[in-house]
């Protein structure tokens, strides 16, 4: 039976190729497995590298961006004239719209005691434009800085902001250490 023979031969070849494919898959698996970690990786901004270009606000796949300004109170000087809060050259330190640097008024200024003020970021309003970060780094301690908020981030396979970041400030960090916060920061209240 020539037909049978042909079919058998075909089946034999198929099985052989299947094994070959299976083995090559296993090969790729093993080769890649040597680079695997049980750790999850997430994207984060290194504030030391960030140049406050403003692309975090425009290039994140989320809108508004998953990048928000956070305040490292530990590093803050609690200045009255805050370079992150006020527009440069402000004359009267009032909290009116003519004075804030933040386009969405996401920074709250609270009086503590003479002559110190506390600045709190209202995250719902922040769009990650880094205007305040630039102000704070230029005139102050740089306590305001950008971070990717992991409750908002989709953790894309390739971060759309990282691709366009001019200073390569965004890289993957282990999920167990998901933030790079300035100052002596070892954790905080979880939100």
């Amino acid at each position: 039976m020539a037909e049978d023979k042909i079919i058998k031969r075909r089946e034999f070849i198929h099985t052989g190729v299947r094994f070959a494919l299976g083995i090559s898959l296993a090969g790729i698996g093993v080769a890649a497995a040597r680079k695997t970690t049980a750790e999850k990786w997430v994207w984060q901004i290194d504030p030391a590298k960030c140049t406050q270009c403003g692309r975090c606000a425009t290039d994140c796949v989320k809108s508004p961006s998953a990048v928000k300004c956070i305040h490292a109170y530990e590093v803050c000087g609690y200045c009255d004239l805050c370079g992150g809060y006020f527009k440069p050259g402000v004359k009267k330190m009032e909290t009116g719209g003519e004075n804030h640097l933040c386009p969405t008024a996401a920074i709250q200024r609270k009086f503590i005691e003479e002559p110190y003020f506390e600045y709190v970021i209202i995250e719902e309003l922040c769009i990650g434009c880094a205007k305040c970060v630039k102000g704070c780094s230029s005139f102050g301690n740089g306590s305001l800085h950008l971070q990717i908020r992991h409750n908002l981030c989709d953790n894309c396979n390739e971060c759309a902001i990282a691709r366009v970041c001019p200073s390569d400030a965004i890289s993957r960090v282990p999920a167990s250490q998901p933030y790079i916060i300035k100052g002596d920061f070892h954790g905080g209240t979880k939100a």
Binding site: Y73, N141, P178, F185, T189
Partner: peptide, 21 residues
């Protein structure tokens, strides 16, 4: 540039939140 003040009013410094991934 501006050292953290020493508060006399008992102000407690908040900590930045870090929502987990």
């Amino acid at each position: 540039r501006f050292p953290k003040p020493e508060f006399e009013s008992g102000y407690e410094q908040p900590s930045p939140t870090t929502p987990e991934p």
